[in-house]
Design a protein around this nucleic acid. Structure first.
Lengths: 210, 210
DNA sequence: TTGACTCTACTGCAAGATGCAGTATATAGT
DNA sequence: ACTATATACTGCATCTTGCAGTAGAGTCAA
C-alpha cells in the first residue's frame, strides 16, 4: 500500500518547499520552527521525507560531504500541488498536553510540596521556551531570519507563543498564591474563595489581576 | 513482559482512586475532566484499566446491568501506593499541537482566505471548549460537582483553561486585524509593522491591547 | 598522537497511542 | 413496531515515539 499523508507529512513537505534539506537538517529546523505548533520526534522527521519520495512528492539524491554521503530531499511539482490542496482543507482541533496540570487535578493524592514542585517544573519548561522565542525575535532584528521574505509569518506566530507563555506564567503565579492559602491538598471542596472563583468563571471573567 | 506505567496509566489510576468505574464510564469522565490536561482516545481508556489489573493496581469484576454484563474496575492498595509515588516524580514538559498555527506558519502557500479560514476554525474549536468550561462552572455553583470535596482543584484548573482560551481568542482577533493589512500572504517579509512587532517581542512585551 | 567529545547522519525495533470498523444489548421516544 | 441513541466493548492497521546502536568527521587538550 502507498502511505497516506498526515499533517506531519504536510509539515515536512512545507519545509521542503522552502529549500532542499537533509533529514538531519529537517530535524534541527523542525526543532526551531515547528516545535510550538506541531511538535514531532526526530525519528519521524527522518521517516517522513522517505514517504514523500515514495508518493512522488519529493526526490532524493546523495551528496558527498567529505567521504560520507548524505541524502538531500527536494520537493517536486506534484508535491507543490499537494501542498496547495492541504492549505484549503479542514484543520484538526488544537490540543494541549501538560502533565503538570494533570498533577494539579489529582493533587489531593500528594502533598502541597508535590503540587508546588509540579508548578515549578511547568514554570521552568515554559520559561525556557519563552526565553528562546524572545531571543529569536532579537536575532530577527539583526537580519537573522533564515527566510527573510517569510518574517511576517514567523513574527505573527511568535506573538501567539509569547501571549501563551505569558498567560501560563501569570497563571502559575496566581495558582501559587491560591495554594499558599490551602492548609492541605485534600478535601477542601467549595471554600468561600473557591466559590468566588467559580462565580467569576461562570460569568466568564478572569480572576487574574482584576 | 509486564506492561509499564505511562502517564496515561497514572491518569486512569487516579480516576479509579475516586471511585470504581467501568471503562465506558472512564471514557466519559476523561472527556469531561482530563481532556484539557491529558487528552486521550476512547480506545486507550478501554485498554488502560486492563493493564492496571495485570500490574495488580486494580481488580475487575463483572456486574449485571439487566441481561448484559459490564466490567467494573477498582483500585487496589498497591495501586494507591503507585499513585503516591507518581505524585512526587518529574513531570513531562507541556506540549501544544495546533494545525491552524501550522497553517499560519506556511500561509504563504495559500491565499489570505485560506488563512482566515484556519483562524475561523481555531476560533470555533476554542470557542466550544471555552463555552463548555463556563457552563461547567455554572453547574458547580448548583452543587453539580461529582466529587464535591475536590472542587478547589477543578476550579483552579478551570482558571487555567479560561485564561488560555481567552488568550487564544484575543490573539485570533489580533491576528485577523494584522492580516487585514496584508495585500497577500507571500513575500511580505520585514514590513515596518512586522519590525515594530518584532521589536516589542524582543523586549518581551505584548503587542495585544497595549 | 592518542583519546575524549561533540556533531553529523542515519536505521531497527519495541511499545505507546489513535482511528475506525465492527459487534451487540438496552432503553427511550414516536 | 421502528428508530435512534446510549451502553459496552474488541480487533486491527497505522501513526508516532523513545531508545539503542552504528559510524564518519572535526576539535581540543594532555
Amino acid at each position: 500500500m502507498t502511505p497516506r499523508m498526515t499533517t506531519s507529512s504536510y509539515a515536512v513537505l512545507a519545509l521542503l518547499d522552502l529549500r532542499p534539506w537533509t533529514a538531519y537538517e529537517l530535524t534541527n529546523q523542525a526543532q526551531r520552527s515547528l516545535r510550538y505548533a506541531w511538535p514531532k520526534s526526530e525519528r519521524l522527521l527522518y521517516s517522513e521525507p522517505k514517504k514523500l519520495v515514495e508518493l512522488g512528492y519529493a526526490t532524493t539524491h546523495k551528496e558527498a560531504s567529505g567521504k560520507r554521503s548524505r541524502n538531500v530531499y527536494e520537493i517536486t511539482d506534484a508535491g507543490r500541488r499537494a501542498l496547495r490542496e492541504w492549505t484549503g482543507s479542514k484543520t484538526q482541533p488544537p490540543r494541549i498536553e501538560a502533565e503538570a496540570l494533570l498533577r494539579l487535578l489529582f493533587a489531593d493524592h500528594g502533598t502541597l510540596e508535590d503540587l508546588r514542585g509540579a508548578l515549578d517544573e511547568l514554570e521552568t519548561d515554559v520559561g525556557e521556551h519563552h526565553q528562546a522565542i524572545v531571543e529569536l525575535m532579537a536575532s530577527y532584528l539583526n537580519g537573522g531570519h533564515p527566510f527573510p521574505q517569510r518574517t511576517h509569518l514567523s513574527v505573527l506566530f511568535a506573538t501567539f507563543q509569547i501571549e501563551i507563555f505569558k498567560t501560563i506564567e501569570r497563571w502559575i503565579e496566581f495558582a501559587r498564591e491560591e495554594i499558599d492559602e490551602w492548609p492541605t491538598t485534600r478535601d477542601l471542596g467549595m471554600t468561600p474563595r473557591t466559590e468566588t472563583l467559580t462565580r467569576l468563571l461562570a460569568e466568564d471573567q478572569s480572576p487574574l489581576n482584576p
